[in-house]
Amino acid sequence: MSEAPCILVLNRIAHPLVRDLMPGAEFLVVPAAPDPQIPPGAESRISAIMARLPGEVRAETIAHLPKLRVISAAGVGLQNIDIPAATRAGVVVVNHPGHGFLSVAEHAVGLMLALSRRIVEIDGRLRSDGWRARDHFLDRVSDRYGTVLFGQRLGIAGLGHVGLHTARICRLGLGMDVSAFSPSVAESVFQEHGIRRAATMADLCATADVLLLAAAYRAGRPPLLGTAELAVMKPTAILINVARGGLVDQPALVDALRTGQLAGAGLDVFDPEPPPADCPFRDMENVVVTPHVAGPSLYSALGLARSNAEQVFAVLAGRRPPHVVNPEVYDRA
């Protein structure tokens, strides 16, 4: 690099370690928006973008940055980056698989336990009613005290890092039976981890006591969990979504939860994000919600910071980083 890089950061820097690993770099941190407000005069200097949700990198932004060479996603997800536009402009896009999956998997298990043991509901009643909350739940133990996960079937849609690690925790730690729908994953992976293969998404839904969505999301595709899939689920089943809100037909999910077609849901992701103020999930006692925070932890933040710095630095130094999303940029060079 002949000059110190100027890096546009949408939202905020994930961890101060990024600065430590890129000494001399200029960081321009701006609020996340579809049309980021770049400081006057900075457009001609920016050579890299670090895009954290809900920040977006659109074609218009790319077109106004003549020195832009690399866009780094916040983690694995890429729905906030116009990859075709970046590729046309010769801009490398990188992401960071394998850094947040431990946090996401543990968060998913936490949502399962919160729902099955009704932890959030009990906590709220204890805070409002005092020790009378105990009698409220003991008197209605059959339907209000919650169940256990031991011996139940966990169905996983998507056997990537998150899906596999959640399977390990639930099978070995909680005594759950695990099945998965993940057509691209080899049979040897299923056998190695003691996971049953579901032939279709409908088969997975029909047999699951807990359904975990951990699949990749691609904009424009139909929801993985729609009306037909919800219709075959057990009325005692719960849904956990730590992947992307677009994987679920949300109006259909609302109906299923309201009518008792589904017992409950633990949701860390929504479509859109942030959800509107009148989002019905907020008022449902059988739903536990968190604001897309399954991935962040000190452990994952340190790994993502290092990966961001190393991959951005590699591109700016003329080297090919390990996790290029659009290799066509190099193939045509």
Rank of each mutant, 00 (worst) to 15 (best):
I122E: 04
P222Q: 09
W131V: 12
G90N: 06
P84D: 00
N80S: 01
I38C: 06
A228I: 04
F270D: 06
Y145I: 10
T87H: 00
T259Q: 14
S297T: 14
P235I: 13
L212D: 05
D177A: 08
R125D: 15
P280D: 13
A198G: 03
A85L: 01
E229M: 07
R144D: 13
A301I: 05
K67L: 12
F270S: 09
L17Q: 14
V162L: 09
Q250M: 13
L225A: 04
A105N: 09
P322L: 03
V324A: 05
L253E: 04
R88H: 14
D82F: 00
A51F: 00
N80V: 00
A265I: 13
V30C: 04
F150G: 08
V148K: 06
R117N: 13
D268S: 12
V57W: 01
H193Y: 15
V76D: 05
I122S: 15
P296A: 03
L212I: 09
D135S: 14
A105M: 13
R171Y: 04
I7N: 01
R196T: 15
V93S: 00
L68V: 08
D249Q: 07
V287M: 08
I49M: 01
I71A: 02
A243K: 11
V178Q: 07
M233Y: 06
G75T: 06
A180N: 07
A51P: 02
L102H: 10
L230Y: 07
N95A: 01
A219Y: 03
V29T: 11
R140L: 11
M112P: 10
A333V: 09
L149I: 13
F27K: 03
S188L: 10
P322G: 05
V104S: 11
V76C: 11
W131G: 04
S184D: 07
A48C: 13
P276Q: 08
L78I: 00
R69K: 15
G130P: 12
I238M: 15
S307D: 14
E192L: 08
T166W: 04
P97K: 02
P222R: 03
R19M: 06
I238E: 10
A14C: 14
D135I: 02
V94R: 01
A263P: 07
N95I: 00
G318Y: 10
A73K: 01
